[in-house]
Nucleic acid binder design. Structure first.
Lengths: 353, 353
DNA sequence: CTTGGCACTCCACTCCAGCGAGTGCTAATA
DNA sequence: TATTAGCACTCGCTGGAGTGGAGTGCCAAG
């Protein structure tokens, strides 16, 4: 991929100084000046020299200053360079991993998968002091286990679907006429015989097929079964969802102290819609992905970075998890945490299914 | 109930002026001065006279000023007096009610009761520009309709409960040994025969009884049924929950513009725990209840008021709903809205069950 | 009891000076 | 040629002084 004009590789010295500057800025959020950098860079260079280097880095698009007489702050490009090539990650200690695993499972005593998702989300937000987000797992291939119908008042029927051996979905269907209990029972029996153990997508397809092919030549019982089944499976995909935790952590950051900005951000969280879109993109990728500032494409997140990783059940990617924080988050700490949490969550979900 | 010292009834003039002052303060949040009040009170009184009255009201605890040369603001006591005796509510127009009803049901196309709750919550927040809150309905008497067990891997069993003809609860039970599919089927049959149509609380009691009485003299099948049943019903009450909407509206109010306060408030919302406690209290009451400032007993809500009303299904109180906003909210508008929304929600839930 | 008058208080705003931090540039140096 | 010291300059921040306005409390007259 062609870089933008003027983005030649940095010299080793430039790289080192950029790294130190980013680290310092991440620590306290204050613009870093030449004097400070010269003292803490480890290189024996005077502030004047540092200033020359900084001026170069600014020309290259890595730094900018809020005003003439302040120090310099990293741009998005600098963070990008930082995470891509400059920073080195300490792989977490085994005992640290173990402690994470325990916390993850402690927080999810309710044995549902949803409890684990919530636990993962608050675990992420708790240890990073950022906002944690985890999408609810969603398998492409859902195995239908059992169907049950119960009549309600009017023309309505409560349908219960057991899927993937552990999830239960239920919906109220409103039908064109009232069905008797025995009709419903035989319909359920028929559908179970035909479709139990099959993939939901397949089931949907075949139902449409059957209904098409045999419109009215059918046995009465089968016909009602098909009618019911069609309604049941015709629903739009159950919408995806995610669990957010520790949003309030974001209030601490000066970058977001403007109440108006905060408000819009929190509204977006509540809406979920826009945000899901962003998370969806990351499902196709592999490993930890990082969106710095504007890279996310949402102007609400201009001052934020998003670090995500997909997680898997049975080697199938079923969701993603991550954190949201200010661009000046502690990447070297956050990235390994997101990575390991994704793996732990996948493993925990596996062991429960 | 004895009033606090010095709280004699107000004269008509004092009452009127207090009312106007509160109204003005609610409108723009600025302390109200004697000049303004004299112009807009409708009484032909000079600012000097108004000042005398205001000084009296201050002595009585209804007013206070932030500093010498500012106007005066109502105290909690003044709001209390305002809502109790001063304000008169315009009963909402029939067409207004109808529009509310339509909005409530539009927002709840997913036919579950939860969808209605969510819709009510965002309806409340939408039209009041405050935070809306609705607890999920919870009946004291839950009618058990059907039980089903499905074996999972290991010693675990997925149990499905249909309750009140429309709600489905499911839990994963972890048992002392593996049960075969036929064992589970007969257990379910047994429990259904015995308990279908009965109240859950009764079921729980009787299960314990049976288990106690007939420990090991029992038929094998019944014994496993009882074991399963006991685990199933032994769980603590499913925790109550509420749905919050439009929290971000609260960010607009100057009273809460302090980010630190906001943060603690939002954290409390996310925790839910403390907050549920407050809502629980209101379940016993009747009609609209109002907590002004410190009356709620939560110091986080010192600058807030909470207006709530219980709602009913089949004349049984099953939950409450309301709004949270700054103490200077437009009570005369908000109170009727909360009242009518509670009635509409109850009605809507009824028609779907 | 009401009112006009008056002195007083306090906040909010503006203006200004002084400071400290940091820069860019230039000229000297290794 | 790369580095450094020196220096003038810029800019934001802080604190104090000054001003205007809003509102009060009190008093004495109607």
């Amino acid at each position: 991929m062609a870089r933008k004009p003027g983005k030649k590789d940095l010299t080793e010295r430039q790289g080192h100084l950029l790294k130190v500057l980013v680290e310092r800025y991440i620590e306290d959020g204050q613009p870093v000046g030449s004097r400070r950098l010269s003292e803490e860079s480890g290189l024996k260079l005077s502030p004047a020299t540092i200033r020359n280097v900084m001026a170069d880095l600014e020309k290259l698009g890595y730094l900018h200053s809020p005003h003439t007489s302040a120090g310099r702050m990293p741009t998005g490009q600098a963070y990008r360079m930082f995470v891509d090539t400059l920073v080195k990650f300490n792989p977490p200690e085994p005992e640290e991993i173990d402690s994470l695993r325990r916390k993850l499972e402690e927080g999810a005593e309710g044995s549902g998968g949803k409890a684990l998702v919530r636990s993962a989300s608050s675990l992420l937000s708790g240890i990073t002091h950022l906002a944690g987000v985890v999408t609810v797992p969603r398998r492409n291939h859902s195995n239908l286990r059992q169907i049950e119908f119960l009549p309600l008042s009017g023309n309505r029927v409560l349908s219960i679907l057991v899927v993937n051996n552990r999830e239960v979905q239920n919906r109220v269907l409103t039908l064109d006429r009232a069905y008797t209990e025995s009709e419903l029972r035989s319909a359920a029996n028929y559908l179970n015989e035909q479709f139990a153990g099959r993939d939901i997508a397949q089931v949907r397809e075949q139902l449409l097929d059957d209904l098409q092919r045999a419109r009215d030549s059918m046995h009465n019982m089968m016909s009602s079964a098909l009618t019911l089944g069609r309604q049941l499976f015709d629903r739009k995909e159950q919408q995806e969802d995610f669990v957010l935790a520790g949003e309030t952590n974001l209030m601490d950051f000066a970058e977001l102290s403007d109440v108006e900005k905060l408000r819009r951000l929190f509204e977006a969280f509540a809406e979920k819609r826009d945000f899901l879109h962003l998370l969806d993109h990351t499902l196709s990728g592999e490993g930890v992905q990082i969106f710095i500032g504007e890279e996310s494409g949402y102007d609400l997140l201009d001052a934020c970075s998003v670090v995500t990783s997909p997680y898997t059940i049975d080697d199938e990617v079923v969701g993603m998890l991550g954190v949201i924080g200010p661009t000046r988050m502690a990447y070297q700490r956050v990235i390994p945490i997101v990575d390991i949490t994704a793996k732990l969550l996948g493993r925990a979900l596996n062991s429960r299914s």
